[in-house]
Design a protein around this nucleic acid. Structure first.
Lengths: 193, 193
DNA sequence: CAAAAAAATTGATGTAGGGTAATAAAAAAC
DNA sequence: GTTTTTTATTACCCTACATCAATTTTTTTG
């Protein structure tokens, strides 16, 4: 068994899994330990897996044609992370997943997911609901990039994700907000006064 | 029956539905005809429904504190539209859905969806996959807003959605790209030269 | 705890795109 | 088909944020 039942119960606490379901799931998960700075997924690799974050902090980022990094998302305890666009179609990653605080994650492949969906319909519902929340968060982010100033986006970020703010560098936050680290610094100064 | 089987077959052409499933679905759908300018959903209303666009063109937009409109998405033939963030939790819309070209849509409620998911598991898979695509599109849009200039976003938009470009006004496109109609005009001039 | 490296701040200046207003072109209404 | 309304363009000036270049602060390493 690759993951303890107690952890599975925690991951899927929104649904009640029969014991056999737990066993089915357990054998599909694999534990990975990561050090700060490790790369869990490189851009251009085929994406076979998604990861459940047990502890630590990771981020997915995109490197544009000029070499600049843009953070799409952070993930801390109890979040799932992958390059989902590529994961859903088992195609090449456009993003990189980097560990920014020593982390423990559990890996599960798309193939495993599909077979688990077949065998445990509750699981498909579980992930559909996760998906709905992630979709809503992305919608909110798009609207916020359309209608908020950099300062408003920063305030909204630290209010929405106070725990993430503590785990990441300012330049990570800047690259998430779509501004430079210098601009973020000026915004922080303004707010503190 | 509120929707013809032939149309259902078209909507769900990715999956093969048994006849009884078709009947179950058919009775949950309701046809709505819309004129240009009609509002299908007002901000602040509880969102009970999503809509399948049969023909015509609609958009969802958000009005910010200064009264400016920001287009989240357009929908043409064979797209689904709603304020999904609110739809998923049956809560209040933050956005408005407006018809921008005379349209025919089919309405289906969240409650109907949930009961259909129970009765027709293929349907949950169908919508999960739709969801995955929509999620990927949103991800692409966020990365594009982080890393592209207004001009690049415009080029990318007209390449990705040539059919939408034909159905909407330039100021709709501007509000989707996050720029003013004046800036879009300048960009168009630049490109045409 | 001293030295080196990484991260954050500050200042000076540049620029993409915004705001306002006037005009032109296209579409709708009569 | 002429008038009215809506949409798009252009010109001028402005602002939020970027870029570049030091400098300071914080963190890491030996």
């Amino acid at each position: 068994m690759n993951i303890e039942t107690s952890l599975l119960v925690e991951i899927f606490r929104d649904i009640t899994l029969p014991k056999e379901a737990c066993n089915l799931i357990a054998e599909k998960f694999e534990r990975i330990s990561l050090k700060k700075g490790d790369t869990l997924l490189h851009a251009n690799e085929i994406v076979h897996n998604q990861y459940y974050v047990c502890d630590g902090c990771l981020r997915t980022f995109f490197i544009d044609h000029s070499g600049k990094e843009h953070t799409l998302q952070f993930a801390i305890k109890d979040w799932w992370i992958s390059d989902y666009t590529a994961f859903f179609t088992t195609s090449k990653a456009v993003m990189t997943i980097e560990c920014i605080q020593d982390a423990t994650v559990y890996k599960v492949s798309r193939t495993s997911m599909e077979s688990l969906y077949d065998e445990i319909p509750q699981l498909e519902t579980f992930f559909r609901k996760k998906m709905e929340k992630a979709f809503a968060a992305f919608q909110k982010r798009i609207l916020s990039s359309l209608s908020f100033t950099a300062r408003e986006r920063y305030s909204s970020f630290i209010n929405t994700y106070p725990f993430i703010e503590q785990s990441v560098k300012n330049y990570h936050i800047a690259s998430y907000l779509g501004i430079t680290t210098e601009s973020l610094s000026r915004i922080r100064k303004e707010i503190s006064q």
